[in-house]
């Protein structure tokens, strides 16, 4: 049996290296972008919690990554392509049976103004 030198991973609560404190109006902007309504009374608490998460995440800023290729796929695999064949059949009835609002085969949404 070998003895392991302890090294702390959990003891610290992520010291803040560079605070990217997010402001309440920024949360409102992000929520608008994500199309999520936040109850006005909740905005403060949501902002606080997200700030905490971002503080934790801000540890990344301390790492020099200038020469490192970003990794989008863990296997660095490349694409296999599909042959150009029609493989799907019309299943409109099944798909629209679970839709909130349809008429004449169309999905309905509140009027879109261009």
């Amino acid at each position: 049996m070998i003895t392991l030198r302890p090294r702390c991973l959990l003891g610290q609560r992520f010291p803040v290296q560079k605070t990217m404190a997010i402001e309440q109006d920024e949360i409102e902007k992000i929520a608008a972008l994500a199309r999520i309504r936040i109850e006005p009374a909740q905005v403060g608490q949501v902002t606080r919690r997200i700030t905490e998460i971002l503080r934790m995440v801000d540890q990344l800023q301390a790492v020099d990554t200038s020469d490192i290729e970003p990794m989008a796929n863990p296997l660095d695999a490349t694409a296999l392509l599909r042959a150009d064949e029609v493989t799907e059949v019309n299943r409109r009835e099944a798909f629209q049976a679970i839709a909130p609002a349809v008429e004449n085969g169309l999905y309905l949404v509140p009027k879109v103004i261009e």
Binding site: V63, T65, I68, E69
Partner: peptide, 9 residues
Amino acid sequence: KKAQQIRRL
């Protein structure tokens, strides 16, 4: 992007 780079590390 930073996270994707550290992911490689």
